[in-house]
Write a protein that binds this DNA or RNA. Structure first.
Lengths: 141, 141
DNA sequence: ACTATAAGTTCCAATAAAGAACAACAAATG
DNA sequence: CATTTGTTGTTCTTTATTGGAACTTATAGT
């Protein structure tokens, strides 16, 4: 795995914005010498720093570290599978939105789910079955 | 800057592939306890590890850390709602994230909540009370 | 050549992560 | 049930890596 594109990119996007190391350091609230070490590959920035750089430079993290085309090549081989998983992921976040919406309005339910989560799996499933029955009943009341 | 999506995602994609922590650790050639600490947010994986995860999970780094536009778009709605509803901060936010996560992984529960959502408020509250009783019982079984 | 600005380097303190060993927990087995 | 297995969480120690300050070097403008 080669990540040596990152130092180059940091320097590239910094100079592209006509910023000195000091100016970039100020934006990140760190010392200038660290920037120098990043750009020379002496030190690898941690995830938080990289995320900030991604936002400041308006470039994806994958592009900054030079893994986007590489990963795309690797992923193309598994395109079908990848596609399926992406859809699943999409569904996941759709769920997240409406479930969050509902839960936000139901503090009690949130607490109950919290407690439920801490129960053994067996008990959780039992509760699910019971709930199914209860909700089924409630629908026809 | 919120990067607390990473631990959740690591665990999510690992379990999604039906891998144990040990199996994932083997793929990365590291010790298992590190995986546990990543998933619990005790430790942040360095860039090389994240890049490997990105390839293994076939997900962009930006997505894994929860900083891609897709994730942000989906979550912004949720975030606005959260901002509007409460001024308690991080803790509540985290609650919603993991509760959503939990529900999404439990298809049965998700469907039940979906149905519950469509019931009259009165019936919903009744169900909540019943659930409270059931969960309380289950805890002391 | 001199000065000022910017960038590279060295050293050290502080921080963070990795691994091993142990503990906790639920699931499976008999 | 009791026991064993499999999986995950936690603690402790060692190791390594990073970040910052200060110093050195290089470059540009006068």
């Amino acid at each position: 795995m080669i990540l040596n594109q990152l130092p180059t990119n940091i320097k590239y996007y910094r100079t592209r914005n006509n910023w000195t190391q000091q100016q970039l350091a100020d934006k990140l609230s760190i010392s200038r010498s660290v920037i120098a070490k990043w750009e020379n590959g002496d030190v690898t920035p941690d995830l938080h720093a990289i995320a900030k750089l991604s936002i400041i430079f308006e470039q994806s993290i994958d592009h900054l570290v030079g893994l986007d085309s590489q990963t795309n090549d690797q992923l193309s081989e598994f395109h079908q599978l990848y596609q399926a998983k992406t859809n699943q992921s999409q569904e996941y976040y759709n769920d997240l939105v409406w479930v969050s919406d509902y839960i936000t309005k139901n503090t009690i339910l949130k607490e109950q789910i919290f407690e439920m989560q801490q129960l053994p799996l067996k008990k959780q499933k039992a509760i699910h079955r019971i709930m199914k029955g209860i909700i089924g009943e409630a629908k026809h009341l």
